[in-house]
Protein backbone atom coordinates (compact mmCIF):
# COMPACT_ATOMS: atom_id res chain seq x y z
CA UNK A 1 0.00 0.00 0.00
CA UNK A 2 2.66 2.46 1.03
CA UNK A 3 4.58 1.75 -2.15
CA UNK A 4 1.71 3.19 -4.15
CA UNK A 5 1.25 6.36 -2.12
CA UNK A 6 4.95 7.25 -2.14
CA UNK A 7 5.10 7.12 -5.92
CA UNK A 8 5.88 10.63 -7.19
CA UNK A 9 2.72 12.32 -8.48
CA UNK A 10 2.73 13.09 -12.19
CA UNK A 11 1.49 16.50 -13.27
CA UNK A 12 -1.85 16.14 -14.97
CA UNK A 13 -0.73 18.16 -17.97
CA UNK A 14 2.61 17.06 -19.37
CA UNK A 15 3.53 18.95 -22.55
CA UNK A 16 5.90 16.27 -23.79
CA UNK A 17 3.29 13.56 -23.47
CA UNK A 18 0.63 15.54 -25.29
CA UNK A 19 3.07 16.43 -28.07
CA UNK A 20 3.64 12.74 -28.70
CA UNK A 21 -0.02 11.77 -28.87
CA UNK A 22 -1.19 15.11 -30.33
CA UNK A 23 -0.90 14.33 -34.06
CA UNK A 24 -2.66 11.00 -33.67
CA UNK A 25 -5.40 12.56 -31.56
CA UNK A 26 -5.89 15.36 -34.09
CA UNK A 27 -6.28 12.90 -36.94
CA UNK A 28 -8.69 10.77 -34.95
CA UNK A 29 -10.70 13.84 -34.04
CA UNK A 30 -10.92 15.09 -37.63
CA UNK A 31 -11.51 11.81 -39.42
CA UNK A 32 -13.40 9.78 -36.81
CA UNK A 33 -14.95 11.73 -33.98
CA UNK A 34 -16.19 14.62 -36.06
CA UNK A 35 -17.81 12.48 -38.79
CA UNK A 36 -19.47 10.30 -36.17
CA UNK A 37 -20.93 13.27 -34.35
CA UNK A 38 -21.77 15.11 -37.55
CA UNK A 39 -23.61 12.11 -39.00
CA UNK A 40 -25.57 11.87 -35.76
CA UNK A 41 -26.57 15.49 -36.24
CA UNK A 42 -27.36 14.82 -39.90
CA UNK A 43 -29.64 11.96 -39.00
CA UNK A 44 -32.05 14.49 -37.55
CA UNK A 45 -32.09 16.52 -40.76
CA UNK A 46 -33.85 16.13 -44.04
CA UNK A 47 -33.62 17.50 -47.57
CA UNK A 48 -31.99 16.92 -50.93
CA UNK A 49 -28.25 17.10 -51.43
CA UNK A 50 -26.68 19.72 -49.23
CA UNK A 51 -29.92 21.62 -48.63
CA UNK A 52 -30.66 20.08 -45.27
CA UNK A 53 -33.05 21.36 -42.66
CA UNK A 54 -33.78 20.14 -39.18
CA UNK A 55 -36.48 17.51 -39.20
CA UNK A 56 -36.49 16.15 -35.68
CA UNK A 57 -37.66 12.57 -35.48
CA UNK A 58 -39.20 12.58 -38.96
CA UNK A 59 -36.47 10.32 -40.35
CA UNK A 60 -37.20 7.77 -37.68
CA UNK A 61 -40.92 7.72 -38.50
CA UNK A 62 -39.99 7.34 -42.14
CA UNK A 63 -37.98 4.20 -41.37
CA UNK A 64 -41.06 2.32 -40.26
CA UNK A 65 -43.03 3.22 -43.37
CA UNK A 66 -40.24 2.60 -45.85
CA UNK A 67 -40.74 -0.81 -47.54
CA UNK A 68 -37.21 -0.74 -48.97
CA UNK A 69 -35.70 -0.15 -45.55
CA UNK A 70 -37.77 -2.95 -44.02
CA UNK A 71 -36.73 -5.19 -46.89
CA UNK A 72 -33.07 -4.33 -46.34
CA UNK A 73 -33.41 -4.90 -42.61
CA UNK A 74 -35.03 -8.31 -43.14
CA UNK A 75 -32.40 -9.34 -45.69
CA UNK A 76 -29.56 -8.24 -43.44
CA UNK A 77 -30.99 -10.30 -40.60
CA UNK A 78 -31.43 -13.34 -42.83
CA UNK A 79 -27.79 -13.09 -43.90
CA UNK A 80 -26.65 -12.58 -40.34
CA UNK A 81 -28.70 -15.40 -38.82
CA UNK A 82 -27.80 -17.97 -41.45
CA UNK A 83 -24.33 -17.01 -42.55
CA UNK A 84 -22.52 -16.28 -39.27
CA UNK A 85 -23.34 -19.62 -37.56
CA UNK A 86 -22.69 -21.61 -40.72
CA UNK A 87 -19.37 -19.91 -41.36
CA UNK A 88 -18.09 -20.11 -37.78
CA UNK A 89 -19.06 -23.77 -37.42
CA UNK A 90 -17.30 -24.52 -40.67
CA UNK A 91 -14.24 -22.54 -39.58
CA UNK A 92 -14.12 -24.37 -36.26
CA UNK A 93 -14.35 -27.78 -37.88
CA UNK A 94 -11.71 -27.04 -40.54
CA UNK A 95 -9.43 -25.62 -37.84
CA UNK A 96 -9.81 -28.78 -35.77
CA UNK A 97 -9.10 -30.95 -38.81
CA UNK A 98 -6.08 -28.93 -39.88
CA UNK A 99 -4.72 -28.94 -36.34
CA UNK A 100 -4.30 -32.70 -36.53
CA UNK A 101 -0.59 -33.36 -37.04
CA UNK A 102 -1.36 -36.54 -38.99
CA UNK A 103 -2.90 -34.66 -41.90
CA UNK A 104 -0.66 -34.34 -44.95
CA UNK A 105 -0.01 -31.00 -46.67
CA UNK A 106 -1.32 -29.09 -43.66
CA UNK A 107 0.56 -25.94 -44.60
CA UNK A 108 -0.72 -25.96 -48.17
CA UNK A 109 -4.30 -26.59 -47.07
CA UNK A 110 -4.19 -23.85 -44.45
CA UNK A 111 -2.92 -21.35 -46.98
CA UNK A 112 -5.49 -22.43 -49.57
CA UNK A 113 -8.34 -21.98 -47.12
CA UNK A 114 -7.01 -18.65 -45.89
CA UNK A 115 -6.32 -17.17 -49.33
CA UNK A 116 -9.90 -16.16 -50.32
CA UNK A 117 -9.99 -13.28 -47.85
CA UNK A 118 -6.92 -11.66 -49.38
CA UNK A 119 -7.91 -12.10 -53.03
CA UNK A 120 -9.08 -9.09 -54.98
CA UNK A 121 -12.73 -8.38 -54.42
CA UNK A 122 -13.32 -7.55 -58.10
CA UNK A 123 -11.63 -10.68 -59.40
CA UNK A 124 -13.56 -12.90 -57.04
CA UNK A 125 -16.95 -11.34 -57.67
CA UNK A 126 -16.48 -11.50 -61.42
CA UNK A 127 -15.59 -15.16 -61.04
CA UNK A 128 -18.57 -15.89 -58.82
CA UNK A 129 -20.89 -14.08 -61.20
CA UNK A 130 -19.69 -16.16 -64.13
CA UNK A 131 -19.88 -19.37 -62.11
CA UNK A 132 -23.43 -18.78 -60.94
CA UNK A 133 -25.14 -17.49 -64.11
CA UNK A 134 -27.91 -19.72 -65.54
CA UNK A 135 -25.55 -21.77 -67.74
CA UNK A 136 -22.45 -21.21 -65.63
CA UNK A 137 -20.01 -23.68 -64.11
CA UNK A 138 -22.03 -24.40 -60.97
CA UNK A 139 -25.24 -25.34 -62.76
CA UNK A 140 -23.37 -27.34 -65.38
CA UNK A 141 -21.63 -29.38 -62.72
CA UNK A 142 -24.81 -29.89 -60.69
CA UNK A 143 -26.74 -31.04 -63.77
CA UNK A 144 -23.97 -33.32 -64.98
CA UNK A 145 -23.67 -34.90 -61.56
CA UNK A 146 -27.40 -35.50 -61.67
CA UNK A 147 -28.03 -33.54 -58.48
CA UNK A 148 -30.57 -31.28 -60.19
CA UNK A 149 -32.46 -31.62 -63.48
CA UNK A 150 -32.80 -27.98 -64.35
CA UNK A 151 -30.29 -25.26 -63.54
CA UNK A 152 -30.84 -23.48 -60.24
CA UNK A 153 -32.05 -19.89 -60.85
CA UNK A 154 -29.27 -18.30 -58.76
CA UNK A 155 -29.69 -14.88 -60.32
CA UNK A 156 -33.45 -14.77 -60.78
CA UNK A 157 -34.97 -16.41 -57.71
CA UNK A 158 -34.93 -14.47 -54.42
CA UNK A 159 -34.22 -17.55 -52.28
CA UNK A 160 -31.36 -18.88 -54.40
CA UNK A 161 -29.93 -15.43 -54.83
CA UNK A 162 -29.55 -15.17 -51.06
CA UNK A 163 -28.07 -18.66 -50.95
CA UNK A 164 -25.50 -17.61 -53.53
CA UNK A 165 -24.53 -14.53 -51.53
CA UNK A 166 -24.19 -16.63 -48.40
CA UNK A 167 -21.97 -19.13 -50.25
CA UNK A 168 -19.83 -16.28 -51.53
CA UNK A 169 -19.20 -14.60 -48.17
CA UNK A 170 -18.74 -17.91 -46.43
CA UNK A 171 -16.14 -18.88 -49.04
CA UNK A 172 -14.37 -15.60 -48.53
CA UNK A 173 -14.29 -15.37 -44.74
CA UNK A 174 -14.21 -18.95 -43.39
CA UNK A 175 -10.44 -19.21 -43.73
CA UNK A 176 -9.95 -15.88 -42.03
CA UNK A 177 -11.85 -17.03 -38.94
CA UNK A 178 -10.22 -20.46 -39.09
CA UNK A 179 -6.81 -18.87 -38.60
CA UNK A 180 -7.96 -17.42 -35.26
CA UNK A 181 -9.21 -20.82 -34.13
CA UNK A 182 -6.04 -22.56 -35.28
CA UNK A 183 -3.85 -20.09 -33.43
CA UNK A 184 -5.88 -20.57 -30.26
CA UNK A 185 -5.88 -24.36 -30.61
CA UNK A 186 -2.12 -24.41 -30.88
CA UNK A 187 -1.94 -22.65 -27.54
CA UNK A 188 -3.86 -25.39 -25.77
CA UNK A 189 -1.63 -27.67 -23.73
CA UNK A 190 -1.39 -30.93 -25.67
CA UNK A 191 -1.33 -32.97 -22.52
CA UNK A 192 -4.94 -31.93 -21.82
CA UNK A 193 -5.96 -33.95 -24.87
CA UNK A 194 -3.59 -36.75 -24.00
CA UNK A 195 -5.10 -36.98 -20.54
CA UNK A 196 -8.58 -37.11 -22.06
CA UNK A 197 -7.47 -39.76 -24.53
CA UNK A 198 -6.04 -41.97 -21.80
CA UNK A 199 -9.20 -41.49 -19.76
CA UNK A 200 -11.30 -42.77 -22.65
CA UNK A 201 -13.01 -39.54 -23.69
CA UNK A 202 -14.15 -40.10 -27.29
CA UNK A 203 -12.95 -37.81 -30.08
CA UNK A 204 -16.25 -35.99 -30.54
CA UNK A 205 -16.46 -35.28 -26.81
CA UNK A 206 -12.89 -33.95 -26.78
CA UNK A 207 -13.98 -31.51 -29.48
CA UNK A 208 -17.34 -30.54 -27.99
CA UNK A 209 -16.47 -30.57 -24.29
CA UNK A 210 -12.81 -29.54 -24.31
CA UNK A 211 -11.85 -27.69 -27.49
CA UNK A 212 -14.97 -25.56 -27.88
CA UNK A 213 -15.16 -24.34 -24.27
CA UNK A 214 -11.43 -23.62 -24.21
CA UNK A 215 -11.82 -21.55 -27.38
CA UNK A 216 -14.71 -19.55 -25.95
CA UNK A 217 -12.90 -16.19 -25.88
CA UNK A 218 -11.84 -16.57 -29.52
CA UNK A 219 -15.27 -17.79 -30.56
CA UNK A 220 -16.77 -14.72 -28.92
CA UNK A 221 -14.32 -12.48 -30.72
CA UNK A 222 -15.01 -14.01 -34.13
CA UNK A 223 -18.76 -13.94 -33.50
CA UNK A 224 -18.68 -10.24 -32.75
CA UNK A 225 -16.43 -9.34 -35.69
CA UNK A 226 -18.41 -11.55 -38.07
CA UNK A 227 -21.67 -10.03 -36.86
CA UNK A 228 -20.34 -6.56 -37.52
CA UNK A 229 -19.04 -7.66 -40.91
CA UNK A 230 -22.32 -9.21 -41.96
CA UNK A 231 -24.42 -6.28 -40.75
CA UNK A 232 -22.25 -4.07 -42.94
CA UNK A 233 -22.47 -6.46 -45.90
CA UNK A 234 -22.01 -4.43 -49.06
CA UNK A 235 -19.29 -5.67 -51.43
CA UNK A 236 -20.83 -8.91 -52.61
CA UNK A 237 -24.42 -7.76 -52.92
CA UNK A 238 -23.25 -4.66 -54.71
CA UNK A 239 -21.09 -6.39 -57.29
CA UNK A 240 -22.40 -9.94 -57.75
CA UNK A 241 -26.10 -9.10 -57.88
CA UNK A 242 -25.58 -5.80 -59.62
CA UNK A 243 -27.14 -3.84 -56.81
CA UNK A 244 -24.40 -1.27 -56.97
CA UNK A 245 -24.68 -0.43 -60.64
CA UNK A 246 -26.87 2.43 -61.78
CA UNK A 247 -30.46 1.31 -62.14
CA UNK A 248 -29.73 -2.27 -61.05
CA UNK A 249 -31.79 -3.86 -58.32
CA UNK A 250 -29.97 -5.86 -55.66
CA UNK A 251 -31.00 -9.32 -56.77
CA UNK A 252 -34.49 -10.31 -57.93
CA UNK A 253 -37.06 -8.20 -56.12
CA UNK A 254 -34.29 -6.59 -54.07
CA UNK A 255 -33.84 -9.93 -52.31
CA UNK A 256 -30.18 -9.11 -51.66
CA UNK A 257 -30.64 -5.50 -50.64
CA UNK A 258 -28.76 -4.96 -47.40
CA UNK A 259 -28.70 -1.97 -45.07
CA UNK A 260 -25.27 -0.85 -46.24
CA UNK A 261 -26.27 -1.10 -49.86
CA UNK A 262 -29.44 0.82 -49.11
CA UNK A 263 -27.40 3.59 -47.47
CA UNK A 264 -25.22 3.72 -50.55
CA UNK A 265 -28.28 3.91 -52.79
CA UNK A 266 -29.87 6.64 -50.67
CA UNK A 267 -26.69 8.69 -50.87
CA UNK A 268 -25.42 8.17 -54.38
CA UNK A 269 -28.11 6.55 -56.53
CA UNK A 270 -31.51 7.91 -55.66
CA UNK A 271 -32.14 11.60 -55.15
CA UNK A 272 -29.42 12.04 -52.50
CA UNK A 273 -30.90 12.26 -49.02
CA UNK A 274 -27.93 12.43 -46.69
CA UNK A 275 -29.98 12.96 -43.56
CA UNK A 276 -32.09 9.86 -44.02
CA UNK A 277 -29.01 7.84 -45.02
CA UNK A 278 -27.36 8.89 -41.76
CA UNK A 279 -30.43 7.67 -39.86
CA UNK A 280 -30.16 4.25 -41.50
CA UNK A 281 -26.45 4.17 -40.62
CA UNK A 282 -27.34 4.67 -37.00
CA UNK A 283 -29.71 1.73 -37.23
CA UNK A 284 -26.66 -0.41 -38.03
CA UNK A 285 -24.74 1.14 -35.14
CA UNK A 286 -27.61 0.33 -32.81
CA UNK A 287 -27.90 -3.24 -34.08
CA UNK A 288 -24.16 -3.85 -33.69
CA UNK A 289 -24.26 -2.47 -30.16
CA UNK A 290 -27.26 -4.59 -29.13
CA UNK A 291 -26.00 -7.81 -30.73
CA UNK A 292 -22.48 -7.43 -29.34
CA UNK A 293 -23.87 -6.80 -25.90
CA UNK A 294 -26.05 -9.91 -26.16
CA UNK A 295 -23.08 -11.99 -27.30
CA UNK A 296 -20.84 -10.80 -24.50
CA UNK A 297 -23.67 -11.41 -22.08
CA UNK A 298 -24.23 -14.95 -23.35
CA UNK A 299 -20.51 -15.75 -23.11
CA UNK A 300 -19.92 -14.17 -19.71
CA UNK A 301 -17.99 -16.09 -17.10
CA UNK A 302 -20.57 -17.58 -14.79
CA UNK A 303 -19.74 -17.47 -11.12
CA UNK A 304 -19.06 -20.88 -9.70
Amino acid sequence: MSAISTRPKRPRFDVNGWLFVGPALALIAIFMVFPILHSLWMSFQSGLGMRLSFAGLKNIYRLFNDPLFLMALTNTFIFFLVQVPVMLTLALITAALLNNPDIKFRGVLRTAIFLPCVTSLVAYTVLFKSMFVANGLVNTVLINLGIVNVGIPWMTDPFWCRVMIIIAITWRWTGYNMIFYLAAMQNIDRSVYEAARIDGVPTWARFVSLTVPMLKPVILFTTVTSTIGTLQLFDEVSTITGGGSAGGAAGPGNSALTLSLYIYNLTFKFAPNLGYAATVSYVIVLLVAILSFLQFYAARERKA
Binding site: E194, A196, I198, D199, V201, P202, A205, L210, M214, A304
Partner: peptide, 25 residues
Amino acid sequence: AMVFQSYALYPHMTVRENMGFALRF
Protein backbone atom coordinates in the same frame (compact mmCIF):
# COMPACT_ATOMS: atom_id res chain seq x y z
CA ALA B 1 -4.04 -43.64 -15.75
CA MET B 2 -1.48 -40.91 -16.14
CA VAL B 3 -0.57 -37.81 -14.17
CA PHE B 4 1.25 -35.15 -16.17
CA GLN B 5 3.91 -32.67 -15.13
CA SER B 6 1.69 -29.80 -16.31
CA TYR B 7 -1.28 -31.35 -14.45
CA ALA B 8 -3.31 -31.21 -17.72
CA LEU B 9 -6.50 -30.25 -15.91
CA TYR B 10 -9.52 -29.13 -17.93
CA PRO B 11 -9.39 -25.38 -17.25
CA HIS B 12 -13.09 -24.67 -17.72
CA MET B 13 -14.33 -27.41 -15.38
CA THR B 14 -14.58 -27.43 -11.61
CA VAL B 15 -12.55 -29.89 -9.55
CA ARG B 16 -15.58 -32.18 -9.34
CA GLU B 17 -16.16 -32.03 -13.10
CA ASN B 18 -12.48 -32.58 -13.78
CA MET B 19 -12.48 -35.79 -11.80
CA GLY B 20 -15.83 -37.07 -13.03
CA PHE B 21 -15.64 -36.06 -16.68
CA ALA B 22 -14.10 -39.20 -18.13
CA LEU B 23 -16.36 -41.49 -16.10
CA ARG B 24 -19.38 -40.21 -18.04
CA PHE B 25 -18.02 -41.97 -21.10
